[in-house]
Write a protein that binds this DNA or RNA. Sequence first.
DNA 1: CCAGTATCCTGCAGGC
DNA 2: TGCCTGCAGGATACTG
Length: 274
Amino acid sequence: MPELPEVETARRALALDLPGRTVTEVRGRPVALRRPLEPERLARALVGRRLAAPRRRGKHLLLDVEGGGSLLLHLGMSGRLMLVSDPGPALAPHTHLVLRLDHDRELRLVDPRRFGLAHWLAPGEETHDPALSHLGIEPLDPSFPAIFPSLGRGRRASVKALLLDQRIVAGVGNIYAAEALWRSGLRPGRAAGAISCGRLERLARALQAVLEEAIAAGGTTIRDFAAPNGELGMFAFSLRVYGRDGEPCPTCQTPVLRTVIAGRSTFWCRRCQR
DNA sequence: CCAGTATCCTGCAGGC
DNA sequence: TGCCTGCAGGATACTG
């Protein structure tokens, strides 16, 4: 579900409320997420500590604690954070972790498919954790369009696979890869290394634009994404090809294709994308 | 090293 | 109506 714009939307909502709050209680069960959730370790690390401003790295959130250490969160495919007043609504099914905060608030992690992650990073562990240490460049970094073409050099895999590879670019998923490739007129299945630098730079700029627009719209809600405050993402209305197979391409009216590239559903226009 | 595939898990839509 | 299949916004361990 959540790609960079959805995680950034979540971060911004949390940034309004979390800084300065103290964690008063941690509840959870040792459920098997991507890594086993360790409620007792999280409780030892978090209870009695004040939270600082949340950070984002790729699709990860980092809830820093005053005095050092961070709660590393990843929402996987179906994860969702809820920030509710306490007592809030009944716990949603698949609520794996609850942080009670002072000032009568609760932060809940809900993740039916359990591909997500909630892991305590002690001071110093952040730089070594494999979830973070292998991440590539942030696509919203101003230097990204200049650097991206060199990252594609020599690669025989598809340009779509290049965008989805978190070790190359951190935060792009299936939706925004499709939209950026359509906007830049690039065929998703083309070998990345065979594309000119100029066109890769254009792709990088298109990706920046689509990510920024999606953040401004509060992300994309297809099925169940919502910000921690419950707001739905409005960018679904702006998707041009993702999920639109058979519908006319907004530019040329040719029906949008759905094929499988890099193991994922891929939506594109055979006429506009070369 | 690189690229492609299988796998983890639940929920839901669509076909019969 | 109900059952079955396939597919879903991700990451990673494995294969060749």
